[in-house]
Simulated scan of single mutants.
Amino acid sequence: MKFYIKQKVFTLGEKFTVKNEFGEDVYFVEGSFFTFPKNFKITNVFGETVCEIERQMFRLFGHYNIMTSSKTITLKREFSFFRANYSILGIDWHLQGDFFDHNYQVLSGSSPVLSLSKHWFTWGDSYELDIPDHEDEVLALAIAICIDEEIERDQSSHN
């Protein structure tokens, strides 16, 4: 199924809605504003928390704990000179693609779990996520949120 994220411009703290391919609200994501480290909460349309994301403190590179009711994984940014590299701990998934251009995949073996692409030239950031398996939706969405947060941190530190 395809999902779409359009982040609002000029908001204090991240707050956005994830819509399905029919334009229906599916998930709501809210990032903490004055909390250190940065945390995110994903809720469903019934207001139930389906995932919590916590950035680990005192790490040179980003480490994010992603917790659902059934699984906890860690997304970890790896040291590299020219390209961003990430690893996923706690599940047999890996990442490939161009993270800075927001065009990448999460794979289980050679099968795609998530394909993400950014829509350029839009007001605010707009992303299309293709997640074939309903069971993987929340974890795949959380990984995309963490990578976006890490890229945003890089860009703000270079300005």
Rank of each mutant, 00 (worst) to 15 (best):
residue 106 V to P: 00
residue 76 K to L: 03
residue 69 S to N: 15
residue 119 H to N: 14
residue 63 H to F: 10
residue 1 M to G: 02
residue 98 D to H: 01
residue 71 K to F: 04
residue 157 S to D: 15
residue 30 E to A: 09
residue 42 I to D: 04
residue 136 D to E: 11
residue 132 P to M: 03
residue 159 N to K: 15
residue 27 Y to E: 06
residue 106 V to R: 01
residue 88 I to Y: 08
residue 103 N to P: 06
residue 36 F to C: 02
residue 23 G to D: 10
residue 50 V to I: 11
residue 33 F to M: 15
residue 149 E to M: 10
residue 87 S to K: 13
residue 18 V to S: 02
residue 149 E to S: 10
residue 75 L to C: 00
residue 149 E to F: 01
residue 127 Y to Q: 04
residue 102 H to S: 13
residue 21 E to F: 09
residue 126 S to H: 12
residue 21 E to Y: 10
residue 84 A to N: 14
residue 41 K to N: 13
residue 121 F to Y: 08
residue 99 F to Q: 00
residue 49 T to Q: 14
residue 110 S to H: 13
residue 150 E to A: 07
residue 29 V to T: 01
residue 97 G to H: 04
residue 156 S to M: 13
residue 80 S to H: 08
residue 45 V to N: 10
residue 73 I to E: 00
residue 141 L to V: 05
residue 10 F to T: 10
residue 50 V to D: 14
residue 140 A to P: 03
residue 121 F to V: 11
residue 59 R to E: 14
residue 36 F to W: 11
residue 67 M to A: 12
residue 87 S to T: 15
residue 7 Q to C: 01
residue 128 E to D: 10
residue 41 K to Q: 14
residue 75 L to H: 00
residue 12 L to G: 03
residue 27 Y to K: 02
residue 114 L to P: 00
residue 78 E to P: 02
residue 17 T to R: 14
residue 72 T to S: 03
residue 145 I to Q: 07
residue 34 F to H: 08
residue 52 E to H: 13
residue 147 I to W: 02
residue 86 Y to T: 07
residue 71 K to A: 03
residue 112 P to K: 11
residue 3 F to W: 05
residue 124 G to A: 05
residue 53 I to W: 02
residue 34 F to L: 14
residue 147 I to F: 03
